[in-house]
Design a protein around this nucleic acid. Structure first.
Length: 464
RNA sequence: GCUCUUGUAGCUCAGUCGGUAGAGCAAGCGGCUGUUAACCGCUGGGUCGUAGGUUCGAGUCCUACCGGGAGCGCCA
C-alpha cells in the first residue's frame, strides 16, 4: 500500500487515494455515532491529519479506545474531503494498528501547553510538540538556505578542524581536549604535567572559530564558507549563549569591508525570506503562539536596507540620547547590551551594521584604518537577539599584522602559518561569523536559545 | 562569576496576618456529541525542592544548599 506523510495526507491532492499513514497520536475523540476521531502527527508538517475510525474495526475496543497522546500507529484507509471545518482532508480508516503504547499515566507530554522550561527537562520528547517541531523544521530550512545561498554564489564549503591547537583570537575560554588520565597525570620532576605524553603531544582544544583556517582556503580558492559546531567554555548564563553552537563563517579573497557588509545583509535577508516563504505554516504557528510580531518584523526587515553606522557616529547618537543608560558610554568603550538594544529597538527600529570600531577593543586580525584609531570590524545587530554577526576585513599587510600581534601580546611563532598567508601572495580579504542558533532564535521568535538547538549545552548541563 | 527572582498534585498555578492543602487541566470511570487543545458529571491523586533554625504551631518567617528563570559581563 502507498505510504503518505501526514503533510501529503492533509493535502487536497491526495483525495481519492487509498494509503497508509504512520505517526504519533496527538488526541482522540470518541463519538457515540459509531466512530472515533484520531489525530496523528509525524513531524512532516505543523498540522495533524484526522482519521475517522469506525467501531466496526475488530480492534476498536481493544486498541482504538485505549489510544492516547504519544502512541505510535499506522492508519490504512481512503483519503476523503473532510466533512468538518478546520481541515481539507481526513482518512476513512479501514485498519488501524498500534506500534507502541504510551501510558497516559506516565507519558510526560500532555495535550495542553507546557512551558519551554519544563519541556527542556524532556529534550528527548519535546520535538513531538507543535512548537519544538516548528522550530526544528525552520532550523532545517535555514540550514538548507545557507548552503543554497553560498553554493549559488560559487562559494566552496570547507571543513575546518574541530580539534585545534591554535586558540584563534586569543579570546574566549576553550574546552581542552585530552586523553590523559586526569586521576593519574604524567608529571615531570618539577611536578608539571607532561603534555608531550598527551595524544597530540601538545595542548589541544575544541575550536572556537574556524576563521584562521578558513582564511587559508580563501587565500587559495577565493570564496569559501564553513558551517559546523563551535565551542566556548565561557560560563555564560544568558538566553542567547550556548557552550556548543553552530557557526557559519564565510571568508572571501578580494573582499573589503563594504563587500562584506553587502554579503552579510543579502545573506540574512535570504534566510529570513526563505523561512517565511517555505515554512509558512510553521511561521504562522510561531506568530500565533510564540511572538505575535514575528512575521511583521521579518517582513519589515526584508523591505528595508540595514542601517550602516560607523562606531563613532553610534557613540554620538548614544551621547545625544536623553535615555538614561545604566552604563554611561564614551568613545573607545565597547557597546553594552543596553546600547545595542537602544539602537536596534528604539532609535532605528531595524537591524544595524556597526563598523570601524576602536582598534583597542577588537582582535589583532582586523584591518587597521589609516586614522590609526579604528579597524574595519563590523557587527550586525538585530532587535532582541543583539549581535548576530561579527566580522571584519582582515589585516593582510604583514608588518601591520605583526605589530598588532605584539600589541595584543600574541606570540608570532604560534601563528607562523597564518603569517605565511601575508608573506606569500597576500590579498585583501574579509569574512564574518554568523551564529546559527541566534538566527533560528530571531526567525522563530523563541525567547531562549536553549530551545532552538535539539540538545543544548550550557554550564552545568550536558544531559542527553 | 555577580545581582534579582522562583520552587505547592502528572502540568499550570492559588494559598490573606504563621493556625495544619485548594482550583483548572491531565488521568480513571460514566454520560453526550461529525468532533477538532470537544463538552458535562463523579473519583483518585500532596514528605509544600532539601537540611537546619525561630515558634505552642511553618507551605508561609530566617539561614545554607540544590534545581528553574531573568538581567549583567563574555560573545555568535
Amino acid at each position: 500500500m502507498q505510504k503518505l506523510s501526514v503533510k501529503q495526507a492533509r493535502d487536497a491532492s491526495s483525495i481519492g487515494l487509498t494509503a497508509k499513514v504512520q505517526g504519533w497520536v496527538r488526541t482522540r475523540r470518541d463519538s457515540k455515532a459509531g466512530f472515533s476521531f484520531i489525530e496523528i502527527n509525524d513531524g512532516s508538517c505543523q498540522g495533524n491529519v484526522q482519521a475517522i475510525v469506525p467501531n466496526t474495526l475488530s480492534n476498536y475496543e481493544s486498541d482504538i479506545q485505549r489510544l492516547s497522546a504519544g502512541c505510535s500507529v499506522y492508519i490504512d484507509g481512503l483519503i476523503v474531503a473532510s466533512q468538518g471545518q478546520g481541515q481539507a482532508t481526513e482518512i476513512q480508516a479501514t485498519e488501524v494498528g498500534v506500534y507502541g503504547w504510551a501510558d497516559p499515566e506516565t507519558y510526560p507530554l500532555q495535550k495542553k501547553r507546557h512551558s519551554f522550561e519544563k519541556l527542556r527537562e524532556w529534550a528527548h520528547l519535546r520535538p513531538r510538540t507543535n512548537a519544538l517541531g516548528a522550530v526544528a523544521r525552520v532550523r532545517n530550512c535555514i540550514c538548507n538556505s545557507i548552503h543554497e545561498f553560498y553554493q549559488e554564489r560559487g562559494f566552496l564549503y570547507v571543513h575546518t578542524p574541530i580539534i585545534t591547537a591554535s586558540d584563534c583570537e586569543g579570546a574566549g575560554e576553550m574546552f581542552q581536549v585530552t586523553t590523559l588520565d586526569l586521576n593519574n597525570l604524567p608529571r615531570d620532576k618539577d611536578g608539571r604535567v607532561e603534555i608531550r605524553e598527551d595524544f597530540f603531544h601538545r595542548p589541544t582544544y575544541l575550536t572556537v572559530s574556524g576563521q584562521l583556517e578558513g582564511e587559508t582556503y580563501a587565500c587559495a580558492l577565493g570564496k569559501i564558507y564553513t558551517f559546523g559546531p563551535t565551542f566556548r567554555a565561557e560560563r555564560s548564563n544568558t538566553s542567547r549563549h550556548l557552550a556548543e553552537f553552530w557557526m557559519i563563517e564565510p571568508e572571501m579573497a578580494f573582499y573589503e569591508l563594504d563587500d562584506n557588509m553587502d554579503l552579510a545583509e543579502a545573506f540574512l535577508k535570504r534566510l529570513f525570506g526563505d523561512a517565511l516563504e517555505k515554512n509558512q505554516e510553521d511561521m504562522e504557528f510561531l506568530n500565533l503562539r510564540v511572538d505575535t510580531t514575528l512575521i511583521e518584523t521579518l517582513q519589515g526587515i526584508l523591505a528595508a536596507e540595514f542601517k550602516r553606522l560607523p562606531y563613532t557616529e553610534a557613540i554620538e547618537i548614544l551621547l545625544k540620547s536623553d535615555k538614561q543608560f545604566q552604563y554611561p558610554i564614551k568613545w573607545g568603550d565597547d557597546l553594552q547590551s543596553e546600547h545595542e538594544r537602544y539602537l536596534t529597538e528604539e532609535y532605528f527600529k531595524s537591524p544595524v551594521i556597526l563598523f570601524n570600531y576602536p582598534r583597542k577593543i577588537k582582535p589583532f586580525y582586523m584591518y587597521c584604518n589609516d586614522d590609526g584609531k579604528t579597524v574595519r570590524g563590523m557587527d550586525v545587530l538585530v532587535p532582541k537577539v543583539g549581535e548576530i554577526i561579527g566580522g571584519s576585513q582582515r589585516e593582510h599587510r604583514l608588518e601591520m599584522l605583526s605589530l598588532r600581534m605584539q600589541e595584543t601580546g600574541l606570540n608570532a611563532d604560534d601563528y607562523w602559518w597564518y603569517l605565511d598567508l601575508r608573506r606569500f601572495g597576500t590579498v585583501p580579504h574579509a569574512g564574518f561569523g554568523l551564529g546559527l542558533e541566534r538566527v533560528v532564535q530571531f526567525v522563530t521568535g523563541m525567547a531562549n536559545i536553549r530551545d532552538v538547538i535539539p540538545f543544548p549545552r550550557f554550564p552545568g548541563n550536558a544531559e542527553f
